[in-house]
Every structure is written in C-alpha cells, then in structure tokens.
Design a protein around this nucleic acid. Sequence first.
DNA 1: AATATATTCAACCATTTGGTTGAATGTACA
DNA 2: TGTACATTCAACCAAATGGTTGAATATATT
Lengths: 111, 111
Amino acid sequence: MATPQTLDRTLTALADPTRRAILQRLSSGEARVTEIAQPFSMSLNAVSKHILVLERAKLVRRRKVGRDHFLSYRPEPLTTAAEWIVSTRSFWASRLDALEELLREEDATKP
Amino acid sequence: MATPQTLDRTLTALADPTRRAILQRLSSGEARVTEIAQPFSMSLNAVSKHILVLERAKLVRRRKVGRDHFLSYRPEPLTTAAEWIVSTRSFWASRLDALEELLREEDATKP
DNA sequence: AATATATTCAACCATTTGGTTGAATGTACA
DNA sequence: TGTACATTCAACCAAATGGTTGAATATATT
C-alpha cells in the first residue's frame, strides 16, 4: 500500500552505509547476528541496533533457533521504494529506459 | 560512479517526507522557494534548509534569476539508487519481474 | 550445577537533524 | 531614495541517531 510511514522506514533504513552493507551481506544468504557483526569495527551492540532498524523496516526477518537468531533479507519493501521513484519520475521518462535496460542486463548476467 | 557518499546523500535526502513532497512538487515543473514552501505548515526557513539538502544530493538544481531562485528536479541520482537496489537483489529475482512490469505500466499510462 | 555463548536491554554520551526566530543580503519597484 | 520582497545566514533548541559500556536473559555444553 506504500503508506508514507512504510516508505519512511524503508528509506531511513537504507540511508546508512552500515545497514546497506548488512543487507548486501544478507543478500547472499542467512546469517546470525555475530556473523554479521564480525567484519565491522563497531561493537556487537551497535550492529544489533542496526539490525533492529532493518527489521522494523521489514527489510530483514528474524528466525530464532535456540540462542541463535538467523537473519534473512526481505526485499519486498524495495519494491515500494521503487514505486515511489516511478511515480515521481514525470519528466524523467528518458531515464526510465536506462533503468529498464539496467534491470534487464542484470537479469541476463545473474540467472 | 555511485560512490557510497553519493548514495548516502541521495537516500538520506529521500528519507524525509517533506523532502519527498518537495520533489514531487518539482516533478511537475520548476518553482521558486516561496512557492514550494507555501503548502507546508512550517517556516520558509525550514523549507529552505530542506531544499539545501536536496541540492547537496543533486536531486534539485537552482537557477537564480534576480532575487528569485528557481528550483528544478534532477532525477539522475535516483538511477544510482536504483543501481544499488538491483545490485543487492540477488534472490530478489522473482520481485524483479514485478518491478519491470510496473515500470512498463507506468510508461503506458503516462506517455 | 557451573560455565560459556548468543543476544538483547538499559543507561549514557556526542553529534546530527529538523525545526524555530531574528538579522543580513540582494533585488525590484514606487 | 526608500520600501517591499525573496532568500539565506546565524544562533539556538529539542529530539533523534549512532555509538559506547555493563548488566540481564536465555540457551548450550561440560
């Protein structure tokens, strides 16, 4: 439904390099909190907080197995964000072709 | 080139409802600062600051004519943002079709 | 039972953010 | 020239953000 709140949460979550890195890590598969935190030069707690932000934005889902929390990437909200971009493009028409082409290219190289 | 900094500025700029509203306003054509500020229930100064954020993100361009500053929408950075989304999708493949279709629909209804 | 591991909760702190008001700057106009 | 208008600059403020450390909770292992 793309409520402004949803869009807010999505874009706010994406507007941080640490959180984008976490998403990129998760885009290649599930991981536990500690595993996600490992490459970062900040405390585990800090990463835990970032994960909460991503979870609130529904970009990440948590599956608890015993003491381990497995996080996975949920890309659905990105579609909402894309919808906003499209709805705002207007005289952006010329750029649209480029985006469509880009999407198609990616589709070809990553089957 | 999609430096992380560029992406940061773009997404940070988009992560505020006032700024998204300003962009939407501008997507239907140029406007002066006062015109842009008029519908908002905040001070002109506050809106002026938001415009600066959008300008820093290169989502808005300023053309000065006498005492008037005309702002226009520059959608290029959105392409960078879209690139990031695409590069992170990975097992998002199924959603991609939906996005492509969406783009095509929009293209049909808004010639 | 005792200990180690995985994670969050809570309190705290510095910086950023989004807003305010009042003054300054530059341009248009009578 | 004087005055109105368009905009930014500067100082300030409250709340949010992104980080820290230390304690709490829950599960696993010995």
